[in-house]
Simulated assay, not measured.
Amino acid sequence: MYNHVLIATDGSELATRGLVHGLALAKGLGATVTVVTVTEMWSAWDMAHEARMSEHNPVDEYEQRAKAAARRILDTAVNLAQEQQGLDVQTLHVADQHPAEGIITACQSQGCDLIVMSSHGRRGLGRVLLGSQAAEVLAHSTVPVLVVR
């Protein structure tokens, strides 16, 4: 049914639930797995603040921190896949993109036919104020999306 599953994670406890579910599903299907994490572009506001605090190169510092955080998230996902499901997974860090856009870009570039991700399941004002990456992915994806609450 599905041959290549993209599992999106930000390393949070909620995203890990989606990761675990996606790994089990992929194993049951015999599918290839790519785990993706997306880091957003640096904020001009934040960089201006860092520059005032006498950071030498705040953009470079941000990029290094983002890469290190992505590496930790993806290493944790690889370990979880191997320990819980005995799966070898591919990993991908998409830098400098809005999360929903990065997930869709990763899906297209990797040739995935299913996206698995978690959602808080917020409704009403909470969703409007905080946004929903899952809702954006659902709205713009050309492949099925499995949302784990």
Rank of each mutant, 00 (worst) to 15 (best):
T91C: 11
P58I: 12
Y2T: 05
L29Q: 03
V78E: 10
V35C: 05
E61Q: 14
K67W: 00
M117W: 08
H56Q: 14
I103G: 07
E40W: 11
H21Q: 14
L80F: 12
V36K: 02
H56W: 12
L125S: 08
S118L: 11
G30V: 04
V36M: 00
S132H: 06
H120A: 14
A77V: 10
S12D: 03
G22S: 09
L19Q: 09
T142E: 04
V59Y: 15
E55A: 13
M47A: 15
I104C: 07
D88T: 12
V116M: 07
Y62H: 15
Q84N: 13
E61Y: 13
I104R: 05
G121Q: 03
A95C: 02
R65M: 10
C107V: 04
L25Y: 05
G22L: 10
A51N: 07
A69L: 02
G18S: 05
E101P: 02
D88C: 07
Q84P: 08
E83H: 09
R17M: 10
R127V: 06
V38P: 06
S43M: 12
A77N: 10
T34N: 00
A135F: 04
L92P: 10
E101W: 12
S118Q: 04
T142C: 06
L138D: 03
D60A: 15
R123V: 11
E50A: 15
S12H: 05
H21R: 14
Q97G: 09
L87I: 03
V116R: 03
V38N: 06
L138F: 03
M47I: 15
D96M: 07
A51P: 00
A48G: 12
A15N: 01
G126R: 09
E136D: 13
D60W: 12
M47K: 11
V20C: 07
Q64P: 00
N3F: 00
H49F: 14
A77K: 10
A134K: 06
Q133R: 14
N3Y: 07
K67N: 01
V20G: 06
A70P: 04
N3H: 08
M1C: 01
D10P: 05
E136C: 10
V94H: 10
S118A: 15
K27I: 00
A8N: 02
K67C: 03
L87C: 05
A48Q: 14
L74C: 01
R122I: 05
Y62A: 14
A15L: 05
T32N: 09
A68R: 10
Q82D: 09
A95M: 08
V20H: 09
T91G: 11
R52I: 04
G28R: 07
E40T: 14
T39D: 02
R17D: 07
M117S: 08
A81Y: 13
T105S: 12
W45Q: 11
I7W: 01
A15C: 04
T76M: 14
G28V: 01
W42P: 15
T37Y: 08
V36A: 00
M53P: 01
L23S: 05
G28S: 06
A134N: 01
I104K: 08
Q84S: 13
L114C: 09
G131C: 10
S119M: 12
T142A: 02
Q64W: 07
G18L: 08
V89G: 06
G30I: 02
R149C: 03
Q108F: 07
G124P: 12
A31G: 05
S43W: 12
Q90M: 13
A69I: 03
G102T: 08
Q110T: 06
G18F: 09
T76E: 15
E55T: 05
N3S: 10
